[in-house]
Structures are given as structure tokens and as C-alpha cells.
């Protein structure tokens, strides 16, 4: 009897079903399924040019969603990330125009991102102010500050060597795609296999149990926010270098797109669960939907409504699934 209950081989059907039903697998199926469905309706959607444009233009959202996933898994939220990306992109571009060495223009947004997000982490973790209040306040400080300093001017005449997003690696992999994949794999591995990475799940899953295990909750939260700032810096760099100009304003509602990618990617809004592989796949799916709307002759103005429906459906499904699991 007891032998029978142990899954004996990898071919156990229940196991295969479980793997297929995981959020990551569902998302991968959705990404491919949507591409085929839209491709049947309008074959031009499947043109290599279009698919690579979708990936290139949205890699920065996937990168930002990695940090956001960590924040949400730790049981927090951040709605300032869109404004931060706008500020960091402007910072990087402004330095580049001033003739600062290119390497500095690439590193500055990373450092500034770590500092600004780390500071928010300190206020949230040590002064115990809810993340929503701190990040809502910071959102308006960054957004208002940026516009009143720059006046929303376009930054032009960027040096050619500034455009990190134009570089290609290992033959022909474009930099944004490379960074997106590398960051996702590194972060997934780090969160799954390292002690600090596991601490994020522990703090988000059960803060009291984590404390009893000797994990410092405030320190973990500060670390998570600092890392989130780092990813926001990388995202800002990709965003700043993908076009020939930078508009020195905050991209509207970017934080919502990033949060949507994290939540739809399977990061549970109750904390403690989720992977960044899911959030990257979700970022790709959202970008694919936005592009698909055009190819099936729907107005792109519907994209935010679709995002809202997606996030709502995922959140409700997540809660219902958890409730069934705990049998409540």
C-alpha cells in the first residue's frame, strides 16, 4: 500500500498534469497559443520582424517585473517603479549628452536605483510605514520632481556609443533580449537556491516563522527593495537606449504594466509564492496581446482594459485556488 502512494516514476500522470498546470507552463502555452491564433487570422503577425520588435520593445518591462516580483513575494508592493524608471532614464540620457564616459552613464541609473529604492525599503521596514503609502508618496515626488526639473523636454543628440540596446551578443542576440533572459535565469536560480533568496519567500509566507528561524525581516525587506532598484536601473537603461531620443517624463501607467506582469506571472499577492520565470513569460504575453490587438483590427486603446481583466482574473483565481488548497 505504502509503496503505491509514492510517485514511482517521472511518467506519473498526476505529476505531468501538475507540471502542465503550473502558472509558468500555462503562460508558455498562452504565449504560443496566442501567436498561432493571431497568426491564423493575420499571418503578418508572425513575421520575424514583428515578433522580435515585440520582444525588443518590452524586454525592459520583464526586467522591471523581476524586481517587482521579489517585492510582492516579500509581502510588499511598489507603485513608484514607473516613475523611477522615467527618472533614471532621464538621468542616464542627461549624463550621456553632457559627455560623461559611457560606462558612467550606464552605471549611474543602477546606483541611483539601488539608493532610491533602498531608502524606501528602510522607511518601510524600519519605520514601519506601509509600502503603499511610501511608494505612493515617492511616485508623486519622482514624477513631479522630474517634470519640474526638465520641463518634459526631449533629450536628443545622444552619442552613438550610448545605445546599449543596439549591441548584439553571441552572434546575433540583441542586448535587451539577452539581458532579459540572463536576469530572469540568474534571479530565478538565486531566489530558489540561495539563503537570502529563500529568505524572501520565508518573510512573505510567514513573517513570524521567518523571525523564529533567525531571518531578519527588516533586513530582507531592505535587500529586496535595493535589488528591485537595481532591476529598475537596468530596465531604465534598456528603455533609455532603445530609441534615439528620451522624453524626460514618466511613462504613463508603467507601474501598472509591471505589476500586472508580476501578478499574472503567478506571484501570489498574499506573498510567499511565485517565480520570476512566470513574470517574464507574463511580460511577454502582455506585450504580445498589445501587438495582437493591432493585427486583429482592434484599437490599441483597449490594451489597459485587457491588462485590468487579466490581473483581476489571475488574482481571483489565485485566491480561490489557495482557499481550495487549505480546504477553507
Amino acid at each position: 500500500m505504502s509503496v503505491m502512494t509514492v510517485p514511482s516514476s517521472r511518467a506519473d500522470p498526476r505529476r505531468i498534469f501538475k507540471a502542465l498546470a503550473s502558472q509558468e507552463a500555462l503562460l508558455a502555452i498562452a504565449v504560443i497559443g496566442l501567436a498561432i491564433a493571431v497568426g491564423l487570422y493575420n499571418p503578418r503577425f508572425l513575421a520575424a520582424r514583428n515578433l522580435s520588435d515585440v520582444l525588443l520593445g518590452n524586454a525592459y518591462i520583464a526586467v522591471a517585473a523581476i524586481g517587482m516580483s521579489m517585492v510582492i513575494i516579500s509581502g510588499n508592493i511598489d507603485i513608484s517603479v514607473g516613475a523611477l524608471i522615467g527618472v533614471l532614464a532621464t538621468l542616464s540620457g542627461t549624463l550621456a549628452v553632457k559627455g560623461v564616459p559611457i560606462i558612467v552613464t550606464w552605471l549611474a541609473p543602477l546606483v541611483a536605483g539601488i539608493l532610491i529604492m533602498g531608502l524606501q525599503g528602510v522607511v518601510i521596514a524600519y519605520l514601519r510605514i506601509p509600502a503603499i503609502v511610501v511608494t505612493l508618496g515617492m511616485l508623486s515626488i519622482l514624477k513631479g520632481g522630474l517634470i519640474s526639473v526638465t520641463g518634459g523636454k526631449w533629450i536628443t543628440d545622444l552619442p552613438d556609443s550610448f545605445h546599449l540596446a543596439d549591441l548584439e551578443l553571441l552572434g546575433s542576440v540583441p542586448m535587451p533580449v539577452f539581458l532579459m533572459i540572463a536576469a530572469t535565469i540568474l534571479a530565478a536560480w538565486w531566489m530558489h537556491d540561495s539563503a537570502p533568496g529563500r529568505a524572501i519567500y520565508a518573510v512573505g509566507g510567514n513573517a513570524e516563522a521567518a523571525r523564529l528561524c533567525g531571518i531578519s525581516q527588516p533586513r530582507t525587506v531592505v535587500m529586496v527593495f535595493a535589488l528591485h532598484g537595481l532591476f529598475a536601473g537596468v530596465a531604465a537603461l534598456l528603455y533609455a537606449t532603445q530609441l534615439r531620443v528620451i522624453q524626460s517624463t514618466v511613462p504613463p501607467n508603467l507601474e501598472l504594466t509591471v505589476i500586472t506582469a508580476s501578478v499574472v506571472g503567478g506571484v501570489s499577492i498574499l506573498g510567499g509564492v511565485g517565480t520570476v520565470i512566470g513574470s517574464t513569460l507574463a511580460a511577454i504575453l502582455i506585450a504580445e496581446i498589445a501587438s495582437a490587438l493591432v493585427f486583429i483590427d482592434l484599437s490599441p486603446y483597449w490594451i489597459r482594459a485587457v491588462q485590468g481583466m487579466l490581473i483581476l482574473a489571475t488574482v481571483i483565481a489565485d485566491i480561490l485556488r489557495r482557499r481550495r488548497m487549505t480546504g477553507a
Binding site: 486603446y301 482594459a305 485590468g308 490581473i311
Partner: peptide, 16 residues
């Protein structure tokens, strides 16, 4: 979380 989701949804409906 609910009202972040509908923040996106209701604005999206308005835009659409």
C-alpha cells in the same frame, strides 16, 4: 490589490 487591478481596468475601459 483589488483596487490596483480595477485602477487599471476602469481606466482601461475609459480609454477603450
Amino acid at each position: 490589490i483589488m483596487t490596483i487591478a480595477t485602477l487599471a481596468l476602469y481606466r482601461g475601459l475609459a480609454e477603450g
